[in-house]
Computed example of a mutant assay.
Amino acid sequence: MPAGPPLPAWLTRVGVFDLETTGVDVESDRVVTAYVGILDADGRQVAARSWLADPGVPIPDGATAVHGITTAHARAHGRPVPEVVAEVTAALRSLFRQGVPVVAYNASFDFSLLACEAARHGVDPLTDPAPVIDPLVIDKAYDRYRRGRRTLEVVAAHYAVPLVGAHEASADAIAAGRVAQALARQFRLPENPVQLHTHQIGWARSQAANLTEYFVSIGRLEPDDMLDGRWPVRHAGPIVE
């Protein structure tokens, strides 16, 4: 098999971001854990910060089953969620101001929930973060007809990226960053992260429209419903796992 394109220079230092939360509703659910880090060209973590928040509401058993954080643990060891949201937002804003692209898998979930949390707690939200790199959107765009699910675990395995400790914020964020780099080595991405960010806005909108059409056809959505394709920050809409 011929070698793919080399890693673009703008992916040799990349931010990575992930949240674990109380649920999947971006407007009403809350941050539980967060991670922001930086990877080098080899996908090695060269800077990192993690947060554990007391979300101020009970953590449902279903969410605990995913990420392992109980209400009791968050209350005993977590920091007040307004402080965590402010610090995570500030960390991401600092990366964007430096021109560092930030990878987030299914970015419209994490950035939307963070923005809603910020607004809830009086923190200036990131309403138009850029440049963002979303391996989920990119993978669907470049390998549209590949069968199977597109969860981070599945996509990481497809691109031979190890993922140990899935649904832990740092593990997911680092794996997502490495998947982004793997995608760039396999496919010829746009010349710079700003162009890629712009392309992803259109790709996400088209992907949401196609998925809406499919879900309506199999009865998972009503004909008048529509998945929200705004990216990387959207408002609440039907969320289908």
Rank of each mutant, 00 (worst) to 15 (best):
D128G: 13
T22E: 04
P125M: 06
R146A: 15
G237C: 02
K140M: 11
F215Q: 15
V57Y: 04
Y142N: 10
A130D: 11
L189S: 05
A118K: 01
A90F: 10
P162M: 14
R120S: 14
A236G: 12
G229N: 04
R146T: 12
Q181S: 07
F96Q: 05
A34M: 03
R220V: 15
A160Y: 09
D128N: 07
A9V: 11
D224L: 10
R205P: 01
A119H: 06
Y142C: 12
Q181F: 08
V137K: 01
V103C: 00
G68V: 09
T198Q: 15
W231S: 04
E27K: 12
A76R: 12
N106Y: 01
R79W: 02
Q195D: 13
D18M: 04
R150S: 06
P162S: 11
H199T: 07
V36S: 06
V57E: 10
G56W: 03
A76V: 08
F187G: 07
D40K: 13
L19G: 00
A47C: 08
A118C: 07
V85L: 00
L189C: 09
L52P: 05
V194I: 09
R79S: 12
G23N: 02
E222G: 10
T70N: 03
F111L: 15
I38R: 08
I201D: 00
P162Y: 07
E191W: 02
V194G: 14
